[in-house]
């Protein structure tokens, strides 16, 4: 398998805090990569760097052979990297369907300002097509019943799923999920895990997954990188990570080992 994303010696310093320190890892085409570590380890910061929300202090990010650092976020999206947010960022006053439509608009809705002002037939056709396509993405995440609700009225777990539907509509090659199962009960997080696997297969995605539900992580991920205080302390398959003494000490804890055995 070839590597779609190569992160090399990525460093980010906020004032006195080193949020990421010489972080290197790569994501292979089609794999689900876990990114785990205690709170404040720098996981979200890594996502912010990859998506161009904040510039790195130093280091490089290669996506399909192209250097990303210095690019604007909206350009990086066009290259094929899309994310969800740990602290949900939906368009709250808009409906569930509209949230997805906005993502689709940027991808493949083609009409000019003039066509929209004059409501030309071509524009109306485009609008219908985009609406239908948006419904399809809602169906993927089992949200089609909620299409006309305002997004802020959705329960928490469904808001997270809507963020994923919206991200899918941006037609990513690499999807970054920041704690998608946060606040879900075990039942819901298992369903979400199945969905993540399904969209990876159906849309031929590569995924980086940040989460604290270890069952979800160990179940889904092909490989895992563990970070602590901004530094990578281990990387490997789920089995290797669960046996790694450094990881057990820094993050998983002795309790985890006992529960497993």
């Amino acid at each position: 398998m070839e590597e779609i994303l190569v992160v090399q010696k990525l460093t980010k310093v906020f004032g006195g805090v080193v949020a990421c320190k010489d972080l290197s890892f790569c994501v292979k085409q089609g794999e689900i990569k876990g990114l785990i570590g205690p709170n404040g380890a720098g996981k979200t910061t890594a996502f912010n760097l990859i998506t161009g929300v904040i510039p790195p202090t130093s280091g490089s990010i290669l996506f399909m052979g192209e250097e990303l650092s210095g690019m604007k976020p909206h350009v990086i999206v066009k290259r094929g990297i899309v994310r969800t947010f740990q602290n949900i960022r939906l368009f709250q006053n808009l409906t569930v369907l509209e949230n997805v439509i906005i993502a689709l608009d940027q991808q493949n809705s083609n009409y000019s300002v003039g066509a929209s002002i004059l409501r030309l037939p071509g524009m109306k056709r485009e609008e219908r097509r985009v609406r239908e396509a948006a419904m399809d993405y809602l169906r993927v995440m089992n949200l089609e019943q909620r299409a006309d609700q305002t997004s802020s009225s959705l329960p928490y777990g469904l808001q997270r799923k809507l963020e994923i539907a919206r991200a899918l509509a941006s037609q990513p090659k690499l999807l970054l999920l920041d704690e998608p199962a946060a606040g879900m009960n075990p039942e819901e997080s298992r369903e979400l895990a199945r969905l993540i696997q399904k969209i990876r297969d159906d849309y031929h995605l590569s995924i980086i997954l940040i989460d604290h539900h270890m069952d979800v992580i160990m179940d889904l991920c092909d490989s895992i990188a563990v970070i602590n205080f901004g530094e990578k302390i281990a990387e490997g398959t789920p089995e290797e990570i669960q046996r790694n003494p450094d990881v057990l000490q820094a993050y998983l804890g002795e309790g985890y080992k006992r529960a497993k055995s």
């Binding site: 909206h74 066009k78 906005i102």
Partner: peptide, 9 residues
């Protein structure tokens, strides 16, 4: 922020 993350300039 979310808008920019969806490719909106």
């Amino acid at each position: 922020v979310a808008a920019e993350m969806m490719g909106i300039n």
